[in-house]
Design a protein around this nucleic acid. Structure first.
Lengths: 358, 358
DNA sequence: CTGAAAGCGCTTACAG
DNA sequence: CTGAAAGCGCTTACAG
């Protein structure tokens, strides 16, 4: 797409050196069909002239844009920065640009966004799907980033395993009664995290699950979770499926004068930007987004290369219909222990006191 | 960039209808050089065939890619989702795609990122610059989003005015001694916010400023700010330049058993995703990012249209060198009052008590 | 090792 | 109102 810019093109370089554009092209692409001397000369002249290859010309000829689309369910999601940053890094490492598209939590918008990306000629796309979306009828390679329990999924973190780790950690601290805090009961990711948590309960432990979205339906957004009551009922650990909800729980407890971690533990998920800097710092699960991005981009690059064609305009280049990258990979989750789940045992015996040890 | 896809191109449609590609092109672009009947037929056939125009062909011919670059200082910045979402919406509204680039807080990386975008042929770019960066030598229209005090700036929020509003609000609540919490003393945006805060102090009010980055230099990342000491010194309001730092202050105070807002008020900036859901909900300044994005994209679109050329390959199309969009716009900031700065007067008289009114 | 030629898909002056 | 032709910049078989 590098436009009809005033800058030099292959022809200019060719003229300056006194060779054909074909030779310049071959020299610069390093395909080794040009003598070493000439390659040097051409490279030098290209540099002097400040040559920048035209992506438009190249794309038109090769049928490849060198651009990947990134479709996100909701850019406003607090995890998005990590995803976008990792994908951008992985893509640009692999020589691709990243075109973003926001489905704004809406399935129709998601379809439109996907179509816009197709129209812009992306070579492939990474989709973090909206819940319940069928990714189909997409005429280019697609990598789906979701949770392993989603069919057609390409790569994801081991959300279930992350949940296990959290509960194993809380169990080791001596917690017996846990409140598991989810937001949306329709989310695969959240269900997997909570499923993992439950699966790691020891025989002497018990857990109850609340879904904030249901709570908000009756009490309005940002409503209190009634955690002081839970503490009185004997819950000593609050494990949320996201740092955002953990933060909500933590501040609600703090405001009620309940001390964390002396009286109760709070844990999150995702290691969001605020997790390490709040007081107490939040114990959470960190996912290695860079690895996920690398896998997704690599899978995509392979799928794209598999559709390579030599003849320009070869109509068999794409098989048509969805090419979902087949393999599924799971990236491990890493437990990050911070103060919010530290030393609770000290107070586990006197948990109803509420003393303000300043 | 729509590749040599198997899908139909203008030629296919032309053949199907029995006209020339020129006529198909004219019909679909609606330039009115084709009879109404023929336009209808062509449109219908194009739809039936599922025609998607090739961006590569169009870009090569017109010299315009229809893509804007978005350069961010640090994608991990918590404000980034808002920026990216707003820009993506504004751009796609205006018919542009958005290619992202992350400078990862590094000036060299920023330059590389900008170059990559140029190579990909963006028609223009939106840059949220790294502090102290000179945006120059960019061979395409650029919109700079920063604070008004940055030279060459295109559009920004009125950070100074936002600071004023915060302090006026705190003053109205009866606060006399404020602690202003900045992070990086080298940031123009943060200095403007704090400058605005100071400028709104009434004669009977006083403020002290701390910069967290300096604090962290000696005490390590995520260190405590020593706010209990400040409360003892008589500070009753803590105004941070970002919700992230406000959150840090709030949790530190809560952990120390100091009640917000009964004993002290805490305010932030940016209305980040957690601001409304924590307890107490955070009083903050909301910036209308959509407006900023609209202005930036519109300015860019104007600048791009001004470089239009009719003859393909016209070498005068771009003037060469930086075309910084000239006009500067300031978008107002909106104060959002929530509980973290509510009703402090009740306790302003007994502020050293620290009673835990559960 | 090097070059002439074709062609990707599009748009636009120009001619009819 | 419609069409033939040129050309954007690139890459790649093919010929020499």
């Amino acid at each position: 797409m590098a436009l009809n810019r005033p800058g030099p093109n292959l022809g200019k370089i060719a003229a300056a050196v006194g060779v054909s554009t074909a030779t310049v092209s071959n020299a610069l692409s390093g395909k080794g069909r040009v003598s070493a001397d000439l390659v040097d000369t051409i490279r030098k002249v290209a540099d002097e002239l400040g040559y920048v290859p035209s992506q438009a010309g190249r794309a038109l000829r090769t049928g490849r844009s060198g651009v990947l689309g990134l479709v996100l369910p909701d850019i406003a999601n607090p995890l998005f920065p990590q995803i976008a940053q990792a994908m951008e890094a992985a893509a640009s490492q692999a020589g691709y640009g990243v075109l973003i598209a926001d489905s704004r939590g809406d399935v129709t918008t998601q379809t439109q966004a996907i179509n816009r990306l197709i129209e812009r000629g992306v070579d492939g796309m990474i989709i973090v799907p909206r819940r319940g979306t069928r990714i189909a009828d997409i005429d280019c390679p697609v990598a789906v980033v979701d949770t392993p329990s989603t069919p057609g999924n390409t790569v994801s973190a081991d959300h279930w395993g992350g949940g296990r780790q959290i509960v194993e950690h809380l169990g080791a601290l001596g917690h017996k009664r846990l409140l598991l805090i989810g937001y949306d009961p329709a989310s695969n990711v959240q269900n997997d995290r909570i499923g993992g948590m439950k699966s790691a309960l020891m025989p002497d432990m018990s857990a109850e699950t609340i879904w904030l979205k249901n709570l908000e339906q009756t009490q309005g957004a940002g409503c209190a979770m009634g955690l002081t009551g839970r503490v009185q009922q004997g819950f000593t650990a609050f494990a949320a499926v996201s740092d955002l909800h953990a933060l909500r729980a933590l501040t609600e407890l703090q405001q009620a004068g309940i001390r964390v971690p002396e009286q109760v533990s709070v844990t999150g998920f995702d290691d969001l930007i605020f997790a390490p800097v709040i007081t107490p710092a939040l114990t959470t699960i960190h996912m290695n987004m860079a690895t996920i991005a690398d896998i997704a981009v690599a899978a995509l690059a392979r799928a794209i290369d598999a559709t390579i064609t030599t003849k320009p305009g070869d109509k068999t280049r794409k098989t048509g219909g969805t090419i979902v990258v087949a393999e599924t990979s799971e990236v491990p989750m890493e437990l990050v222990v911070r103060q919010s789940s530290g030393l609770p045992s000290i107070l586990l015996s006197s948990q109803s006191e509420g003393t303000s040890v300043l």
